[in-house]
């Protein structure tokens, strides 16, 4: 960003912001009488392990790993469901259009917390036993188990992880469906007509003409959705999934160090989200190469 010439107003605003921040700190120091003690925090990030003789990730880093796993898996599952719903929303047939419309409206008009609890308690009791994750784990070889644990987290928590991940996916899918629908409808009608005029069938039209153009338009909002998902994953703390916010809460309570823990946790989320934002920015610029 090129620095414009600084005007007097800029200085006034800057001074006001500094004053506001200083005031907050002053209030924290004098009114709350808070004893800052950061000493316990590093230990929760990495601890010295006698057995291996090295630093090993502790709760906060493990929580972050779970958060990232949830975000990625939810994004994958939600994208698949969301794309199907989004294409269904633009279908000529009434039934797919109606069903996907109903689903999207339902999710968009219920806040995440009630939906999460409803869906979690429903699927935990009904669907999870059907998926048979626990049996699969017991029967798995050590090699498979190691790969599974890398992908999904600790074995004993896998069913829980799956439940939380599916709940989040059902919610995100609705938003992704809208993004995909908007992307498809943004493709000009003339494109479809040109494809039809060379004899392409409906499926060929979608595959070679409409979806490739829709996808390019859909990547920026999807990237935003992913970053939102990293933050919204903290919701599953409510159903005791051991991700970053849940563990931060436990540590803050047991150590009685609220500010330090939450500031560090907030910083961790920020670093992850901002890195993703930068990465997606570069990706978007590369995709934008041969479009006007």
């Amino acid at each position: 960003m090129k620095l414009q010439r600084l005007t007097p107003i800029d200085f006034v605003i800057f001074a006001a912001v500094i004053a506001a921040v200083a005031y907050v700190f002053y209030r924290v120091e004098t009114v709350l009488v808070y004893n800052w003690d950061w000493s316990a925090i590093p230990n929760y990030l990495f601890r010295w392990d006698e057995a291996t003789g090295g630093f090993v990730p502790n709760l906060l880093i493990k929580g972050l790993a779970t958060t990232i796993r949830i975000a990625i898996w939810t994004m994958v599952v939600a994208s698949v469901i969301g794309t199907i719903l989004g294409v269904a929303r633009t279908s000529k047939r009434l039934f797919p259009r109606l069903v996907s419309w109903a689903y999207v409206e339902f999710i968009r008009n219920i806040p995440p917390v009630p939906f999460l609890f409803l869906f979690y308690f429903f699927i935990a009791s009904q669907i999870m036993p059907l998926l048979g994750i626990d049996e699969a784990i017991h029967g798995a070889s050590p090699g498979t188990l190691a790969v599974a644990e890398f992908l999904f987290g600790p074995a004993n928590l896998m069913t829980n992880f799956a439940a939380g991940m599916i709940s989040l996916s059902m919610m995100s899918a609705a938003y992704i469906a809208e993004i995909v629908r908007a992307g498809i409808q943004a493709v000009p009608k003339g494109q479809r007509e040109a494809g039809q005029s060379i004899g392409l069938s409906g499926i060929q039209l979608m595959r070679y003409v409409v979806l490739p153009q829709a996808i390019a338009r859909v990547v920026p909002p999807l990237a935003g959705q992913f970053i939102t998902l990293i933050k919204d994953s903290s919701l599953v703390a409510l159903i005791s999934i051991q991700e970053l916010s849940f563990l931060a809460m436990e540590i803050a309570i047991s150590e009685q160090r609220f500010f330090e823990v939450w500031i560090v946790t907030g910083a961790m989320y920020f670093i992850v989200c901002y890195s993703c934002a930068l990465l997606f920015g570069r990706l978007e610029r590369r995709i934008g190469v041969h479009r006007r």
Binding site: P188, Q191, A194, I198, G199, H290
Partner: peptide, 24 residues
Amino acid sequence: ETRRTAEIRAEVGMVFQQFNLFPH
């Protein structure tokens, strides 16, 4: 019947005012 429609369209070429080339 839509099945014949695609076949027929393959036999009829069309040039549009807005060109409608595939940009990708």
